[in-house]
Design a protein around this nucleic acid. Structure first.
Lengths: 132, 132
DNA sequence: ATAGTCCCTAGAGCAAGATCTAAGTCAAGT
DNA sequence: ACTTGACTTAGATCTTGCTCTAGGGACTAT
């Protein structure tokens, strides 16, 4: 429990696959409002921040915008009173992701169909000169 | 077969959920190089172009860039000789989409986990004041 | 004490993908 | 004849999400 490893921004950048620039940018945009500094003003990250970043990336990669992320973070900072609202947001986001998955699956079907068409064409069936 | 319905750009915009601007933009970028014009210079779209647009959107929505799309269209225009290469591209894109799906599924897991955590917290278990 | 390396800020710059503007053409309807 | 509305162009502008620059501070090793 007292094992509280701390990281500099460079180390976090490596761990999180985000650039140093991006980490500072996210902080400026209010997505990481809880990073402490040492006496010299250097950012000190802890494990929980890395975890948080992973989750942020999850939301971002599923299409949440920076400003929506900021909103979500603001709710989090406000504490218990906003838990219900946050659950709602996440439920909605989950639904969005499920829709994305369904859409992508249908796209796989379309690509397969086209591959099939090309394969037959390759086998010498036809050529219209038109895209198809 | 002689039922060859034609459309103006406005009609296509409605049918395809792309804006008129975007349709012209795509044409300028070489993604729709086969649209004929009438005597007045008005673009005439046909059903096959609408189909093609749907496929273009599929590739675009799965992360293919405008310039990659252009490349793909150029291969298509070149005809039979490029079929194998096009199949390769589509196979690769298909793999990309499958990876996307897998990633999204894991994200759903993360979101679920967080929802679960919030739900427990709501039930009165704890509150750290930290994002979690 | 000098170099090297990491950190800091504020703000500029960039790329992609649209999206819009200005100025104009064209055809149909009244 | 004239309005309406959909179309045309070239090119400017916008948005998002970074990404980088300039100028500087702080710590470590030589």
């Amino acid at each position: 429990m007292s094992l509280n490893i701390q990281y500099t921004i460079g180390q976090v950048a490596e761990k999180s696959n985000l650039s140093i620039h991006t980490l500072r940018y996210y902080e400026k945009e209010g997505i990481l409002p809880f990073i402490k500094r040492n006496e010299s003003g250097i950012r000190i990250y802890e494990d929980e921040h890395i975890e948080w970043l992973k989750f942020i990336c999850c939301l971002r990669d599923t299409g949440m915008s920076i400003s929506q992320l900021k909103e979500f973070v603001e709710l989090t900072v406000q504490g218990d009173a906003t838990i219900e609202e946050r659950i709602q947001m996440l439920e909605l986001q989950k639904k969005t992701v499920q829709d994305q998955v369904n859409t992508l699956m249908s796209y796989i079907g379309m690509i397969d169909f086209k591959i099939d068409r090309y394969s037959k064409e390759k086998a010498g069936i036809k050529s219209t000169g038109q895209p198809e």
